[in-house]
């Protein structure tokens, strides 16, 4: 087995182990992750409309009486 093959073997085993650990994530953490996702989507819904177009809004002229 070459060095590269040994490297790939350890990476593949680590990947499988990490995937297995994900499957055993506890319910409380899953629920909190879902809540975090929903909060992010709420923030997406509430974002300023100009972000959708990727256009930065034009700067407003500054009036001297505002300074």
């Amino acid at each position: 087995m070459s060095e590269d093959d040994r490297d790939e073997a350890i990476a593949a085993r680590a990947r499988r182990e990490l995937d297995r650990q994900l499957e055993s994530l506890d319910d409380a953490t899953r629920v909190r992750l879902r809540a975090a996702r929903l909060r992010a989507l709420d923030a997406y819904d509430a974002r300023p409309a100009w972000r959708e177009s990727n256009q930065v809004p034009a700067a407003q002229p500054v009036r001297l009486d505002m300074l």
């Binding site: 975090a36 992010a40 923030a43 997406y44 974002r47 972000r51 959708e52 177009s53």
Partner: peptide, 10 residues
């Protein structure tokens, strides 16, 4: 997640 959703979702 929030930063991605608000800044880069477009």
């Amino acid at each position: 997640m929030t930063a991605l959703a608000t800044r880069y979702a477009g």
